[in-house]
């Protein structure tokens, strides 16, 4: 028994899954708190964006760390899933589902679609590849009055696309499913669960997942309902005026 058992044994791999899952859960929460600043107005979220972009010593280690965490999460997921498939070579002719929730049975699928979404999401709002935002606009050139990158405008324009919004909400629904099972399962996998507070953890997992889901989708829905359009239009008016000038 040594540290390599963490990577070799079934329980060890579940530890990796759970620990990385917990880190990603925290990231999801922090990211949401950052995003929700959109409701404080353009100034607040643009300052937040500028703060992050202005501290590369912070943001790059965080990015690299996240990348490793995601990598380990996916590596253990694939490894475990392959082993799980191999453990039952001959399927049942008839199998009823007993107790297993939909979320618990679809973790691999929800996980992989979320991973695909993350790649899109990074191209969309981080790398800001114009081709994927479906609005014809180039997000990199958006600036606010203080010549900071206009994150607020980028988000509003980004979510004015109905297709993007629908994909986003779908991905967040999968994230909800993934977390509603994953958050309580990670306590189970790490053994941080006992009959005393086990039901509390399960409830926490569901409540936290709902809050995260509602929090994230509140932004595109607000945009679809018109939030921020006057701010964006004001730039269009400005631009128009400049053209006129």
């Amino acid at each position: 028994m040594n540290i390599t058992n963490l990577f070799r044994s079934s329980v060890g791999k579940k530890f990796i899954m759970a620990i990385t899952g917990m880190a990603l859960f925290l990231f999801v929460v922090l990211h949401l708190l950052g995003n929700l600043q959109i409701f404080l107005g353009p100034e607040a979220i643009n300052r937040y964006g500028a703060f992050l972009q202005g501290n590369l010593e912070l943001i790059w280690p965080a990015r690299i760390g996240l990348l490793i965490i995601v990598g380990l999460h996916i590596w253990s997921a694939i490894k475990l899933a392959v082993e799980n498939r191999a453990a039952r070579p001959q399927p049942y002719a008839q199998q009823e589902i007993v107790a297993a929730s939909y979320a618990s049975r679809t973790m691999v699928w929800s996980g992989f679609i979320i991973a695909a979404f993350i790649i899109y999401h990074l191209l969309h709002f981080t790398v800001q590849v114009p081709a994927v935002n479906l609005t014809g606009k180039n997000f990199t050139t958006l600036e606010d009055a203080k010549n900071q990158h206009d994150v607020f405008r980028m988000m509003v324009i980004g979510f004015q696309s109905r297709v993007v919004t629908l994909f986003y909400i779908f991905a967040m629904w999968l994230l909800f499913l993934h977390l509603s099972h994953g958050v309580s399962a990670m306590f189970q996998s790490l053994g941080w669960k006992s009959p005393g507070y086990g039901s509390l953890i399960a409830r926490f997992a569901v409540v936290a997942s709902w809050l995260i889901f509602v929090g994230y989708i509140s932004i595109p829905i607000a945009v679809q309902l018109g939030y921020g359009s006057s701010y964006v239009n004001s730039f269009n008016v400005n631009a128009l005026q400049e053209v006129v000038k």
Partner: peptide
Amino acid sequence: GFGNCTVTGSCE
């Protein structure tokens, strides 16, 4: 060659 626990609760 058993599989891994994904905490579905079917066993219980």
